[in-house]
Design a protein around this nucleic acid. Structure first.
Lengths: 213, 213
DNA sequence: TAGATTGTTAATCGATTAACAATC
DNA sequence: TAGATTGTTAATCGATTAACAATC
């Protein structure tokens, strides 16, 4: 691909654009200008135009952007037009919560399997899929065309499991374990460090309170 | 406070520093230089020194940083030396998962209550705390000195609940609902938009694959 | 004292915003 | 055509990195 590298900042904003455009679309809004979107999303119109232009001209002078078209284009950029098969490693509370969160299915993320080391959970059904023992994981990935592994296990086990996943050729890891995974560059990783997020919130509380003094 | 404003970028890095320092501390490492930490964390030593200096000189020339001291200082900056009482709004899978995630308790975030609109869940116990009906929420917040509300309800309800929380004077909202909350500036908000995160991962997969062509 | 390493200033890089010509 | 609004270049702002004097 000849496209120049898109910055992390732009990528991080795409899902939010996608969400707003989806809402406009649901309200059957046909077109929107960068200025209107700017007011709605509380970002500058200039940034919106710059962002969209990273991927080619989606708009039209004097008209603005066609909501449906832009929505579909961003959907493609995000790869939501493709189907991904995902498994969840760790059938604890969080793993089960994610398995039950059906919005992902809607976007083409197909929940295919869930694994745990705890025998008490084996054969329990979650959304019609039984919990399998960890030993079966690698074979399952090979046989079921799995792209994404969701790690919801303690950090003590996460590193070893990530290695296994890498060896079996997983494409991506959605990592909820509180540890930085060290994987080769062909494996994509997205971290969700919930405690980091809660700490940021704690910081914000403290900062606000100290300002009030 | 006379301290100049700390950038969002620096704040976002603090929890990660905190995590690494905690690990070093557990391994009873006494001191560390910015260069060693740089190698460990894969960030530049220069950035580490700049970041720490936003909050005052934690280090010592020719010596480096004392791990225990730095750990404690960052802990204070993040407000982890204070106790926060939190309630969870929405006793679904995610709400229950968060209620059961005990690591938060360890950091001073005390799980105090959980609420839902579904009567089938009332009086179910989660970590010894019963699920209460939503109607009791505002009184409960007033009576129990609640600082943080965790929103794990659908976005259709989130905006209205956020308003109630604001009215009753909540300090902070940890928002898992997939909507941007519009609250006054005295209410701190930290969003965890899981589907945004999954979309970013999806983008990364697509980008990598298109590069391979 | 010599060596190490911070704290901090200056240089660079990248991202955001402003401005406006192009064009629908 | 006139008005609106994009696409895009230039200006600004802020964050990161480099460099080095201060100092333990």
């Amino acid at each position: 691909m000849a496209e120049r590298e898109i910055s992390q900042a732009v990528i991080s904003r795409l899902p939010r654009y996608f969400r707003y455009l989806g809402e406009l679309r649901d309200r059957e809004v046909e077109r929107i200008s960068s200025q209107e979107l700017s007011r709605l999303m509380h970002v500058t119109a200039s940034q919106i135009r710059q962002d969209f232009n990273h991927f080619g001209g989606f708009g039209q002078q004097g008209y603005g952007y066609n909501v449906e078209y832009l929505y579909q284009e961003i959907s493609k950029i995000l790869g939501l037009d493709k189907t991904h098969h995902l498994i969840i490693i760790g059938a604890g509370n969080l793993g089960q919560a994610l398995a039950n969160y059906m919005n992902f299915q809607r976007r083409g993320f197909i929940f295919t399997g869930i694994f745990d080391i705890n025998p008490a959970l084996f054969d329990r059904q979650i959304r019609g899929i039984r919990v399998r023992p960890m030993e079966e994981m690698t074979d399952f990935i090979r046989q079921n065309n799995v792209d994404i592994a969701v790690l919801t296990i303690p950090k003590s086990e996460a590193v070893a499991v990530a290695r296994k996943l890498t060896d079996v050729g997983i494409k991506a890891i959605w990592n909820f374990a509180h540890v930085d995974l060290d994987v080769p560059e062909e494996v994509q990783v997205e971290n969700v460090h919930l405690s980091d997020s809660l700490m940021r919130l704690s910081y914000l509380i403290g900062r606000y309170e100290s300002r009030q003094e």
